[in-house]
Design a protein around this nucleic acid. Sequence first.
RNA 1: GGCAUCGUGGCCGAGUGGCUAGGCACAGCUCUGCAAAAGCUUGUACAGCGGUUCGAAUCCGCUCGAUGCCUCCA
Length: 493
Amino acid sequence: MQLFKSQVVRVTNSLSGKKEVFNPIKAGYIGMYVCGPTVYSNVHLGNCRTFMSFDMIYRYFKHLGFKVRYVRNITDAGHLENDADEGEDKIAKKAKLEQIEPMEVVQRYTVDFHNTLQQFNFLPPSIEPTATGHIIEQIEIIKDILAKGFAYEVNGSVYFDVVKFNETNEYGKLSGRKLEDMIANTRALAAQDEKKNPQDFALWKKAEPQHIMRWPSPWGDGFPGWHLECTAMSTKYLGETFDIHGGGMDLKFPHHECEIAQAEASNQKSPVNYWLHANMLTLNGKKMSKSTGNNLYPSEIFSGDNNLLSKPYSPAVVRFFMLQAHYTSILDLSDDALLASEKGYSRLMEALGNLESLVATKKGEFDIEAWRNNCYKAMNDDFNTPILISHLFEAVKHINLIKENKERISESDKELLQKTIHEFIFDVLGIENQSAMEGDSNTLSGVVELLIELRNSARINKDFATSDKIRDELIALGIQLKDGKEGTTFSIN
RNA sequence: GGCAUCGUGGCCGAGUGGCUAGGCACAGCUCUGCAAAAGCUUGUACAGCGGUUCGAAUCCGCUCGAUGCCUCCA
């Protein structure tokens, strides 16, 4: 199945600021790089949103039949804390704080990262390279940039010469900045700085004697700079120019801008055709952030152990909630919004169950082909999952009508509907049916069936006190009975 | 201060020059022993002020407000 031959996908390219038709370099193949996490603390929900956006994009491309190589790195060498603290990196700082090895910190939070993403039903990337595993590649790139005259060495550190680069290239084209403006707005400080200009950034930093994470290099012992690892790993696994580079909006400047500069300095060509940026998840109207403490961990949502939400929410509900907003829009998390999503999610899953038992008769009024095309149209338009979901609810409405014999469906239409709805919900959106996973297989459903029988006989005998007691006690336990034309069913919340 | 984005009905959230996504909540109706579930119906919202246009929430300008980046951050 090579759906991509008939489906034209348009994406918002940050480089042009416009929606563009997506054309891969090699037909049928896609190279996609996404900036992964820095593993010095637990991933928070905001991080998850970005990775979820690209998980969805990865899933859709795969669904269309593309062969996708999806590379998402693990930053375990640590970015610099700031210019003032003598280049101590984050991993090392945390390690000292907790009196353990840096790689132990990395291991702990890498495991947490993977566990969390698994709960959200993320597909693993094709390659998940680490920064520490690519020190040699990074050193090679630095040598190359030095040789080409776009970097300079000072006291065992190497800096990228932004001003020099800007003479022949355009520094700031991704984020819409002009170097002259940036220089004009620079605060006059950092007197002891080794850099020629404040805009210059480190490719290699000399390690102070107490610095734990260090590697030998032509410039002495040290560690790689902020932005180099992504250039090294994306080039190694995807080539000098590849299709898609993704990441959070907050990485646009300076991180991605620097990646472009590094790659152009060493290869003389633009590294990426389509830059995609996922927008922020906010909490109380403010960006979630590790440094400010305005954040929520996934585990706190799943357990309900937090001060912000009235109840726990499952990973599938949170995923559904996030996909109800477009990935380029800011999304604000609140209890009301999650509550609404949870109900919508349940209704969707309920309909999915009803679909299986639908009796096919003859051609009905629901045009499945047209509906299916609309689903693709929504996804082709810059992965518009909110619109896709609105179409899914359109189908829900028809499923329920058919169930109540108010509409008909033919056998072939039913099969197409089932196939399509499963593909979009499970394969593309990656939403799991949690109630189906928990219920059914155990003894609970048998017990509920028994109670339904008892209640029905009570109702026949007009013993409503008993029948209502059964119904009300069950609802108190989170089991809802649903009286329909074909008998009584139930759902477990 | 510089650069950018956003401001949609009770809440969340799409859309984008005319045909008013969707979810949740609310109300009425159908169904029901009563409910719930499900279905149907109703809500004419696009920060404010000007302008362009036959026509703007959608384009342009200004004002106000919010957010993001400019320092590690998804």
